[in-house]
């Protein structure tokens, strides 16, 4: 049995400890946000936050979550009350097929929590690990910029350049 905390709730799952977190989130916890895209850390569709850092859940052993906080796009808001990035993505229709989008929102969240008002270049560099095949990039950037302008996701006291 492995215990993990996802979006504030603690779960116990009976899986092989080396199972990538992605499969546990999707199948054991029935969370749809993180997607399988490549399983190789090359596309970012599976991005989730672990202790506020964006990670590829397809390459994250579930056993590594011990004592850490996992957050997925489901934790950022609900259909009734979407979070700031979710709302910005809806408002700007920053979706085509949408398959990449949950991963995009999660990665952007990590940046905006850490950096209040990132520059355009910081945003683009930060988003580099995530691929979109539909070409929705202009709108994704636009949605991120809109939330960046408000600084509302920024966590006070956490400063530092984008990596």
């Amino acid at each position: 049995m492995i215990e993990l905390t996802v979006n504030g709730a603690t779960h116990r799952v009976d899986v092989d400890p080396a199972t990538p977190l992605l499969y546990v989130l999707r199948n054991e916890l029935a969370l749809n946000g993180a997607k399988f895209g490549c399983g190789m850390g090359q596309c970012g569709a599976c991005t989730v936050l672990v202790d506020d850092r964006p990670v590829f859940s397809c390459l994250y052993p579930v056993s590594s979550t011990a004592g850490r906080r996992v957050r997925t796009v489901e934790g950022f808001g609900t259909p009734e009350k979407p979070g700031p990035l979710q709302q910005a993505f809806i408002d700007r229709q920053a979706v085509q097929c949408g398959y990449c989008i949950a991963g995009m929102i999660v990665r952007a969240q990590a940046l905006l929590e850490r950096v209040a008002h990132p520059t355009e270049q910081q945003i683009r560099e930060h988003m580099n690990p995530n691929l979109c095949r539909c070409g929705t990039h202009m709108r994704i950037l636009d949605a991120i910029r809109a939330v960046a302008a408000t600084g509302e996701l920024h966590r006070a006291g956490e400063k530092g350049p984008a990596s």
């Binding site: 946000g33 399988f36 796009v73 489901e74 979710q86 809806i90 979706v95």
Partner: peptide
């Protein structure tokens, strides 16, 4: 507004991949 976006940005079941 597109009818399919809300589920896609909040982790709803939106794709055949999400059927269980």
């Amino acid at each position: 507004p597109r009818v399919d976006i809300l589920a896609k940005v909040t982790g709803g079941a939106a794709y055949v991949q999400d059927m269980r």
